[in-house]
Design a protein around this nucleic acid. Structure first.
Lengths: 230, 230
DNA sequence: AAGGGAAATCATATGCGAATTGGTTAAATT
DNA sequence: AATTTAACCAATTCGCATATGATTTCCCTT
């Protein structure tokens, strides 16, 4: 039993027993390696070998400074916007918007309450009254978020917020010339109205199509034409 | 000029000048109110009135403990998974998956490299070899993420990660009975193979359809039937 | 001399208290 | 009477001490 090379195996057995006993208690974090090695009566090296096996097996999860946990690892609690934004570009952001926002509009057409729709219509008026591009963009942001909120699906709303944060980080600084204001015939005004009207009429496909059209207009404006690519 | 009631206006003018001078320097954070009021030679109360005007206008953004910033506010740098997960339910998560994952599969069919596809095929084999449900779920997770990675769109990949983290938080603890292993005729095996094959054949629509079918199977398994709702 | 274990060391993460900052209220001053 | 000033509150950040997993070094046993 004390053969060299079996020490690791013995530690693995003891550790598995410990895990089974602990898993029933609902605890997910196990003691520090220094304590556990002494508690189990095995060397820290052997304990680490056993832990490595279980980690590769996906039964535990280790992280420096935090500890060792049972299960498929503590779900990453927060995600960094800049981590995503740092490795992408405006084209990919638009692609992602074109994928999820039309479907969000579709869900909104299905689930929006009358008060949701009233809020959207109020934002529509405010976009036309915007005196500066900055004001316009704020209200435009608000309107798109109101649509996401009207989907009554907090997961979609959360994904929208992430996407929006990434977008604002990626295109940061790309401000339109200050002082000027959105022209009265700006395409977005009509686009937005079509979207809200489709939602109000519970036209699921129409809402999705209107949103898709709107985003394609924005894309065309943001990225120089590249017809052949599609 | 020293009329009472005009003090606020004077402060607003000075502050706007300060903002214009600072905005060109690229700095987004302005000094603390106590310093700035002394620096501009106005009372803190008047300064705060001016700041309130600019904030309502969307030109600056204030947050306790952090400071005051120019622009439409410092983009929220991190988003908490539990904030999303705490206000949702498995049905909404599945809904969101059904919206974005098929489209991710479509993008993957368009952009996947040969090495991407090879990795997926390897995961396919491993899912069949999984000895426990826990192992199976780990590899299943990996496969879905490989597909998202193959889209070559880091925004979509980031959104997938968020969605995945939310999913794992929402259904946390809903573990299948330990010890048993996935049956050989588990529907996911065939589903996964169809998805990967469609991606390998660059069949965009097929990949999306196969993924949608797969997720609908999973949904049916997770949530008791509710045919009438659709 | 070789192998293995214990201790030292490193890099990362957390916890806590002090300092900072916007928001609010009370006192003081003119 | 009104405004400025100061004091206080609540939320946030920052720095330092501590904890933890990873890695290296040293020493002892055989």
């Amino acid at each position: 039993m004390d053969d060299p090379g079996n020490g690791g195996h013995a530690a693995l057995v003891q550790l598995q027993a410990y895990l089974a006993q602990m898993d029933h208690a609902g605890e997910t974090r196990l003691p520090a390696e220094r304590e556990l090695s002494e508690s189990l009566g095995v060397s820290r090296g052997d304990l680490r070998k056993a832990l490595a096996v279980l980690e590769k097996d996906g039964r535990i999860w280790r992280h420096v400074g935090r500890g060792t946990f049972v299960g498929s690892g503590p779900v990453e609690e927060t995600i960094g916007i800049s981590e995503i934004a740092g490795r992408t570009n405006p084209a990919d952001v638009m692609r992602a918007r074109l994928i999820i926002e039309p479907e969000i509009a579709r869900e909104a057409a299905l689930h929006a309450t009358l008060s949701d729709i009233a809020s959207m219509r109020q934002s529509l008026v405010q976009t036309r009254d915007a005196g500066t591009w900055r004001q316009y963009e704020n209200i435009d942001n608000l309107l798109h978020r109101q649509i996401a909120q009207a989907s009554r699906n907090n997961v979609l709303l959360g994904l929208f917020d992430v996407l929006n944060a990434v977008r604002r980080t990626v295109v940061w600084g790309r401000l339109r010339s200050e002082g000027t204001r959105p022209p009265a015939d700006h395409h977005s005004f009509a686009d937005h109205e079509r979207i809200v009207e489709a939602i109000a009429e519970r036209d699921l496909g129409g809402a999705a199509a209107a949103m898709r059209l709107h985003l394609q207009q924005v894309e065309r404006r943001l990225i120089p034409v590249r017809e052949a690519a599609e």
